[in-house]
């Protein structure tokens, strides 16, 4: 999801947390489900956010069924892509 220029990383994290979404690392998660060797790293996305104002997140069981509408109505969110394809 992409945030506007006014949103900082802190605001972005708060927005994600409020909506019951979580930070995601699709490549790591794919390795986990395939029982491949895992090399855990800090899951913060400060660098990616600083360069592209984007976060890779995922839905969870505590997200509302209206999460897409809420994200689109958010003043700090400038775009969401739910057809995200993992690069790995």
């Amino acid at each position: 999801m992409t945030f506007g220029a006014a949103a900082g990383y802190d605001n972005a994290l708060a927005e994600v947390a409020d909506l019951g979404l979580r930070l995601a690392d699709p490549c790591y998660e794919r390795s986990w489900t395939r029982h491949l060797p895992l090399f855990w790293h800090s899951m913060g996305q400060t660098a990616a956010f600083a360069s592209g104002r984007t976060l890779i997140v995922a839905t969870t069981d505590v997200a509302p069924t209206t999460w897409q509408d809420r994200l689109r109505q958010s003043a700090s969110v400038s775009g969401i892509d739910t057809s995200y394809a993992s690069p790995c």
Partner: peptide, 23 residues
């Protein structure tokens, strides 16, 4: 979040349960 955790309130999260902000 750096540790791959998320905030979540007890008692909430089941399917079709009332949703409340989780922050």
């Amino acid at each position: 979040t750096d540790l791959g955790l998320q905030t979540a309130l007890p008692c909430f999260g089941g399917a079709n349960q009332i949703w409340t902000p989780m922050g």
